[in-house]
């Protein structure tokens, strides 16, 4: 009974979704759009449910690319921040590079990335990695900078070397911060993967969207957008759960 009740409560919490769907339908009807301009939500949902098997390869490809880029970019950012923390000389190289990469819009970078690493999978993975790299870098660096004074003093009187300060103190203080970066970049990773797929990929939700649009299969194109939104939200929720776990363990 209580399970049923909590399921009911959860359903009630979904009201914004229902509200959005109704607004979408009203907007299409009021403007009198044909399905080639904007399909009604019910047809889009029907396409997703009925043709879900057609979506699955694209979902798994995009998800794989997004997660791959998320993990890769986070690791590179983490290592970069540690290098900067470790040595002033490396800081002079890594920090400006990181800032330049961050300042150039990803959309403009994608064709260049593709030219360098090759079209298709490498370009998609490189784009998602690039978008996840900078937040991980900045958050790790701020975590390392926020090692409490008392902790530094303790390791100093224990006669710890720099590697021990990093391994036994710095990394563990930086990890909760790194997880914040994972949470905020996770949806961007999905976005970057889709954008790269849309611009030059042959697989994934981005490519599926571009392909359906060119065949004027608007239900499929809008369905791709809906599916991408759901994937993005799920990735975010997953990252949030991971962040909470790490936080509970380390603080």
């Amino acid at each position: 009974m209580s399970r049923l009740r909590s399921a009911g409560v959860n359903l009630v919490h979904l009201w914004p979704v229902a509200f959005l769907l109704i607004c979408w339908d009203v907007w299409v009807l009021v403007n009198g759009y044909t399905s080639t301009v904007a399909p009604r939500p019910w047809f889009v949902i029907q396409d997703v449910l009925a043709g879900f098997a057609d979506y699955v390869p694209s979902i798994s490809y995009t998800l794989g690319m997004a997660l791959g880029g998320l993990i890769g970019g986070t690791l590179i950012g983490f290592v970069g921040a540690i290098l900067v923390w470790w040595s002033a000389a490396l800081s002079g190289i890594v920090t400006p590079t990181a800032l330049i990469i961050r300042s150039v819009p990803i959309t403009a970078l994608i064709p260049i990335i593709a030219r360098i690493v090759g079209y298709g999978d490498p370009a998609v993975l490189a784009s998602t990695t690039l978008i996840c790299f900078f937040p991980a870098f900045v958050f790790t660096l701020s975590g390392l900078a926020a090692i409490p004074e008392a902790g530094r003093d303790l390791f100093s009187v224990l006669g710890a070397n720099k590697a021990q300060v990093l391994g036994r103190l710095g990394v563990l203080y930086a990890l909760p911060n790194l997880m914040v970066s994972v949470r905020i970049t996770a949806p961007s990773a999905v976005l970057a993967a889709m954008l790269a797929e849309f611009l030059m990929g042959t697989n994934g939700l981005g490519a599926l969207f571009s392909e359906s649009r060119s065949y004027m299969d608007m239900e499929r194109a809008w369905g791709t957008a809906v599916v991408a939104t759901v994937v993005s939200v799920l990735v975010f929720v997953g990252a949030q759960v991971a962040e909470r776990r790490v936080d509970a363990r380390l603080t």
Partner: peptide
């Protein structure tokens, strides 16, 4: 490693148990 200090601020490692915190000087 011949110095022992107890600070006003305890400076314990929040992720480590009582036992690991006390064992820390050995590890360092």
């Amino acid at each position: 490693h011949r110095l022992g200090v107890a600070f006003q601020e305890h400076a314990l490692l929040p992720w480590a148990s009582v036992r690991s915190n006390i064992a820390l000087p050995f590890k360092v």
